[in-house]
């Protein structure tokens, strides 16, 4: 509401809009303009419309564009391109809650092993390789990707999207898991040995998923790995699941899966991607 009949002179208003006034005069003009509708209206003709539109666009960008989850924001700080961040933000397993949950599960497994005093490694060996692989499966989104039909026909490419998300999930959980592995009792190589099955299970899951979808794929992989760890509990040494011979087996499975994936990806490149 206008409480005064006095209005800012045109020249003064122009100087104010252009930012040419000193602090004191500028502040008093601003005080007046904030309360006087007539003077506010007079400024609109003086402001560059393009500048105004840019200002509004920036406000809308901030309000309308969805906020990125914390793990993705951290990745942005480390140089992740902004457009890739948008794609990653849609993945369930890159949300803050998921990453925190993974960390808690791993911490409890590590704690169990530490309290058992080196006799039992199974809890850690069971959980550590499964955390990244479950994360990769969940990165497809619930019920695979609801946008599947669009992803397939988009220039970005489905294979590229899956690989980018897989790498992001691995980057989000592997450093923490490696860190926790350092607390394990027993030989020092155990801290890194679980990486063998962990890295083998991921291509296995991707290869399986390309046939049966990530839901069944992850069920098969999780049951398979659990079976290996549980088998080792029947009188075998605690480090058996990550022993040298077994690691070679995992390597063979991983290599086989990569070959399957490569063949599938070539078909994916052709029209009519694998659904």
């Amino acid at each position: 509401m206008t409480t005064t009949t006095w209005h800012v002179h045109d020249d003064l208003l122009a100087a104010y809009v252009a930012g040419r006034l000193d602090a004191i005069v500028g502040a008093s003009v601003e005080q007046h303009v904030a309360r006087c509708a007539d003077c506010r209206a007079a400024t609109t003709t003086l402001v560059d419309p393009q500048l105004l539109a840019q200002g509004w666009d920036a406000v809308r960008d901030t309000v309308q564009s969805p906020a990125l989850p914390l793990p993705v924001r951290l990745a942005r700080r480390c140089g992740l391109p902004e457009s890739t961040a948008v794609l990653l933000a849609a993945a369930t397993s890159l949300r803050t809650a998921w990453v925190v949950g993974s960390f808690l599960a791993l911490t409890f497994a590590t704690l169990a092993v530490v309290l058992a005093g080196g006799e039992l490694l199974a809890p850690f060996l069971l959980v550590a390789p499964l955390v990244p692989v479950v994360g990769v499966a969940a990165a497809y989104g619930h019920q695979q990707d609801p946008l599947e039909t669009l992803v397939v026909t988009a220039p970005y490419g489905r294979t590229r999207l899956i690989l980018v998300r897989t790498l992001a999930v691995l980057a989000s959980v592997l450093p923490l898991t490696i860190l926790l592995g350092l607390f394990l009792p027993g030989p020092a190589w155990i801290a890194a040995a679980w990486l063998g099955p962990a890295l083998a299970l991921v291509p296995t899951l991707l290869a399986l998923s390309s046939f049966v979808g990530p839901r069944i794929g992850i069920a098969v992989v999780a049951l398979g790995w659990s079976a290996v760890v549980l088998f080792s509990l029947r009188g075998l040494p605690a480090t058996w699941p990550v022993g040298a011979t077994q690691q070679l087996g995992y390597l063979a499975v991983a290599a086989g899966s990569v070959v399957v994936l490569a063949v599938r990806a070539r078909r994916d490149r052709r029209i009519g991607a694998v659904l």
Binding site: S65, P66, P81, E82, S83, T84, V86, L87, A90, L147, L150, V151, A154, P155, Y156, L161
Partner: peptide, 11 residues
């Protein structure tokens, strides 16, 4: 729509 825009390479 933004998600699809990224898939359509609006970087």
């Amino acid at each position: 729509v933004e998600y699809v825009a990224v898939l359509k390479e609006w970087n």
